[in-house]
Design a protein around this nucleic acid. Structure first.
Lengths: 202, 202
DNA sequence: TGACACATACCGACTAGTTGGTATGTTTTT
DNA sequence: AAAAACATACCAACTAGTCGGTATGTGTCA
């Protein structure tokens, strides 16, 4: 069983990459199937060979986003520190480092997509929920360890993990409104300070 | 010179209200001019009499949002407490109280709108920026007073005010993804705790 | 008072182009 | 040979926006 050669990207993947880039820049509704095909260098017949509908592409794009970002964060350097709280703070610093350049390049596909589709497509909404909440879940173990170690109570690791995502998603919106990532980085700094205060880290 | 009677809402206002509701539920691109007209009980000719383009309606809708929410927050009870920090905490509690029911009913028009349009329409983007940043500015005075009173340094009132907006906007996205406001309220609670810790409020 | 000029608000049929999706092929791979 | 991966041509519905026309004022001047 041999999969596609690494240097030749399949039409399906090219469509998903084009959709990912265009949806982040313009949103889902404003991105037409024809434009995605043109950007991917693929005909419409091929599009509907791989995806039964535009909605199905939306679901697949969210899942593709989950996979690619999952691999990125799994390989990221913030897992290095021995202390769990240090790992959580390193995660925030890593996310802050990514906030650079054009908002369309650093913002979250799932967050953008769910804003438009939460009321009109439950399959897309569910795929975005899985992406955001699934990523938050990867932080829970370290947060739980840090909470036990520092005796933090009054909340849960899950709640704190989801709060980090809320701060980041909100930063994306402010960055889009302001036309640059500076405010999003400030918000990430406030999130870091919250963790430092909550965990008594000087 | 007599203006329109208070009980008869003008066609222009009905269009803006319909647009506000539909954009919050489905997004800007997915909302057609025809649908807005139908919901407002107004013909297409009347629409283009009041707005030269759909983009102009987007700008007007953001400004209308700024005006109506501005009046709502100006009249809200959180300005009551004598202590500035209490007023800031009361603001967060007030925002948390609003997080109830259907996401389309409590989420921010400007945040939703700017996500889709930041790259394609600078007039709309600027109107959304003015709405979000203008609202944040109404918090700055109280935050600055509280910072001076409690000797808080290392950040600015403006930065903290914008962080509150980031947390709320991010909460909206998580609420849309999850299908309910519970997580958004938890995030608001974390924001409150951040202020309590930062200002040494037990 | 009444006639005329002008402005505002509105109507709904129409247009040029786009939309997601389909039907019917042809080529490539296994 | 057969199935998967495309390509081409096409369609009905919908898109934002236009256009000629109407109804109802409002101010001006004889």
């Amino acid at each position: 069983m041999i999969s596609a050669p690494a240097n030749i990207v399949s039409a399906r993947t090219r469509l998903l990459e084009a959709a990912r880039d265009m949806i982040r820049a313009r949103g889902f509704s404003a991105t037409s199937v024809d434009e995605i095909c043109r950007a991917a260098g693929v005909t419409k017949g091929a599009f509907f060979h791989h995806f039964p509908s535009k909605e199905a592409l939306g679901v697949a794009a969210a899942q593709f986003w989950t996979e690619t970002t999952g691999a990125l964060f799994a390989a990221a350097p913030y897992h290095g520190p021995a202390d769990p709280l240090d790992r959580v703070l390193a995660y925030i610093d890593f996310r802050s480092l990514l906030l650079d350049g054009d908002p369309a390049a650093f913002t979250c596909l799932a967050g953008t997509l769910v804003q438009e589709t939460f009321g009109s497509s439950d399959p897309i909404r569910a795929a975005c929920e899985a992406s955001i909440f699934g990523h938050a879940a990867t932080l829970e173990a370290d947060i739980a360890l840090a909470m036990a170690q520092h005796g933090v109570t009054g909340t849960s690791a899950r709640s704190l993990a989801l709060h980090t995502q809320a701060v980041l998603q909100g930063g994306f919106i402010l960055a889009k409104a302001a036309g640059g990532p500076a405010i999003a980085r400030e918000s990430a700094a406030h999130l870091r300070r919250y963790f430092e205060l909550l965990f008594n880290r000087e």
